[in-house]
């Protein structure tokens, strides 16, 4: 239910707080995956709010996938790469994303160079 709170909130600070309490609950329940999911979500939320400041666009609330996609669409390949390695995104999915984004934005030359 802490997770639900986190989803419903829009203010990054309180989202993080809810996620931390959710993480603690999972830790008590020995649910390792739950712990790491919450921790990841919290980290992501933090990065998103800093991204939001840099780009002036809303990032908070997006999934990791959509965050990376948005960065790619803005041409921030380096940043996207960094997130990818940080969250251990599988290669397969990352390259799918790269290709789809390029196709969507009609960068056919780039796609050919691939």
């Amino acid at each position: 239910t802490h997770v639900r709170d986190a989803i419903e909130q829009s203010n990054p600070g309180s989202v993080e707080a809810s996620l931390i309490s959710a993480r603690e609950c999972y830790r008590k329940g020995r649910n390792d995956l739950g712990v790491s999911i919450c921790e990841e979500a919290r980290k992501l939320c933090k990065q998103q709010s800093s991204l939001q400041e840099t780009y002036g666009e809303s990032f908070v609330g997006l999934s990791l996938h959509d965050t990376v996609k948005k960065l790619l669409e803005q041409g921030e390949i380096k940043l996207a790469d960094k997130l990818r390695s940080e969250y251990r995104m599988p290669d397969k999915r990352y390259w799918w994303l790269r290709i789809l984004v390029m196709a969507d934005s009609y960068k056919w030359d780039d796609l050919e160079k691939f």
Binding site: E40, L64, H65, R93
Partner: peptide, 18 residues
Amino acid sequence: LEYYKRELVQVYGLSTWL
């Protein structure tokens, strides 16, 4: 199972976890 879960949450967002 864990792989799928992680993937789904990363792509579709935290509400998927619930």
